[in-house]
């Protein structure tokens, strides 16, 4: 199962990231209004949408965006979460109190408001960076990618909180284990204890949570895009495609079914891969 999931994700990634090189530059924006809502088959393999854009092309581009958001934002949250949680849990006491209160405060901020504020203020920032470059005669422009970048930051900034809490809890219970005491007693440097003895032992729950985070992040992206805060049309993401499809469910089922099915299979695959990884990394189960 895990292998099948892994193969599927690899295929999907290949299709989304390498596929576009073989397509025309406007493969996902090419609007042919006469062909709108064409059923699958014929010229449009997976049909066309309400603006006559090729559904296959849009799914490929959407996969690119969704996977990128899912993986990058999860990676960001993973890195911050593990580092933060490990330090907080291992040192405990006052350090832990302060670090965890900070997490609580961030947690209590309403996520949507936080993201809206971030997006609104940072949008101007992106424009002014461009301004700054233009003033110096440079062609460099960041505002094209700026929204994506912000999306990563916003999602990462929220998702790491839970990760940090999970890691901290795990580390705290590990810290009570005698083998950590044995490490201290051997005179091992703290850094080595943390990253050689602690981190490998918390990977199990972390991987499980990560496989849950990737889909959660993809959903979050869909939600933000829906609010008009995430990916900006005409760039598609799976979330946006599903939303568009849901709006036209009666007239054009293919607009919902294809991206929806793909999304679901992807989420399943990530879960299977997560389970497989956890078992593979655990010496106890690798043998039987």
């Amino acid at each position: 199962m895990a292998l099948a999931g892994g193969v599927f994700i690899l295929l999907l990634a290949g299709l989304s990231f390498i596929g576009p090189f073989f397509l025309e530059g406007d493969y996902y924006t090419n609007t042919v209004l006469e062909d709108k809502l064409t059923a699958p088959g014929g010229e449009y393999t997976l049909g066309s949408d309400h603006l006559g854009r090729d559904q296959l092309g849009r799914i490929i581009k959407g996969g690119q965006i969704s996977l990128l958001v899912g993986l990058v934002a999860t990676f960001v949250s993973l890195t911050i979460g593990i580092g933060y949680g490990t330090i907080s849990g291992y040192f405990g006491g006052k350090i832990d109190s302060v670090m965890m209160r900070l997490v609580d405060i961030l947690y209590s901020l309403p996520f949507v408001i936080f993201v809206i504020l971030l997006m609104v203020f940072a949008k101007d920032l992106g424009d002014s960076i461009d301004e700054w470059f233009r003033a110096r005669g440079s062609e460099f422009s960041i505002s094209g990618q700026w929204n994506m970048l912000l999306l990563f930051v916003a999602i990462g900034a929220v998702e790491w909180l839970t990760m940090a809490r999970i890691v901290r809890g795990q580390v705290m219970s590990l810290r009570q284990q005698e083998f950590i005491e044995a490490c201290i007693s051997l005179g091992l440097p703290t850094r080595r204890i943390l990253f050689r003895h602690m981190v490998p032992n918390i990977l199990g729950p972390v991987i499980v949570y990560t496989t849950l985070t990737i889909p959660a992040v993809m959903l979050l992206e869909a939600f933000l895009s829906f609010l008009g805060l995430g990916v900006q049309p005409p760039t598609p993401s799976w979330g946006l495609l599903i939303k568009d499809g849901a709006d036209r469910m009666r007239e054009a089922w293919w607009m919902l079914v294809f991206p929806g099915a793909l999304f679901a299979i992807t989420l399943f695959s990530f879960n299977f891969v997560g389970d497989g990884l956890r078992d593979a990394l655990d010496p106890k189960t690798s043998k039987d």
Binding site: Q177, E178, F179, E181, A182, C183, S185, L186, H197, P200, N201, L281, D282, P283, K284
Partner: peptide, 15 residues
Amino acid sequence: FQMIFQDPYASLNPR
């Protein structure tokens, strides 16, 4: 100076 612990199931890093 070294210590030998009570629980041989908890005193060795399982990984």
